[in-house]
Amino acid sequence: MSTPLVGQIINLLAAVLLLIVFAMLAQRRLLRLIHLFALQGAVLTLNTLVVAVTLHQSHLYFSVILNLVLKVIVLPWILIRLVDRLDLRRDAESVGNLPLIMLVAVVLVILSFNVALPISELAGTMTRGTLGIAMASVLISFLMMITRRKAVAQVIGFLSMENGLFFAATSATYGMPMVVELGIALDVLVATFIFGIFFFQIRETFDSLDIRNLENLKDRE
């Protein structure tokens, strides 16, 4: 029962991450969603920092810096600019049947915890449950992408999914190899740019960012 203090802090951060993912799932306003995303990045950074300090692993310090720059500053900044340019500041969308979605998310948490249990026992890190939480964040972000209709929210879901993956890596194996991490970071950055361009294209074509319009692209016989 007595986990060392560091383990407890990591657990706390994991709990906060789970809370943030749930908040993102329920959040209707785009701007708040981006703020939540930035917060998620910040918690992630803090978590990595804690792990890095305790284990004295120098490559983790790099990923701390990378995280801080990319996920707390750059990506939210790009997203906010995007929202400004697209004039979506006040945009709020209806999130279908919220109680149902929430229940599904709870089921996902339970599921992912039970799936992750054997793996995290193998991993032998300080904390057992964090892998389950990481997996749950990935799945819930996925759920968020499914339930949203607006493209920007979907992108945030995608990015938050990446955050979940990163957290999984930190909690299971204390970070990925540097090369992989850099690669992913670059990917995410580029993906965001591409999405940004894509949004403008969508809007020019349909006058809206509602992705239901994409259904119209299908050939009709």
Binding site: N11, A15, L19, F113, G129, I133
Partner: peptide, 12 residues
């Protein structure tokens, strides 16, 4: 509910 789940996840 989240609190309870988190108890199962990380504290149990």
């Amino acid at each position: 509910v989240l609190g309870m789940l988190i108890h199962f996840l990380v504290e149990a």
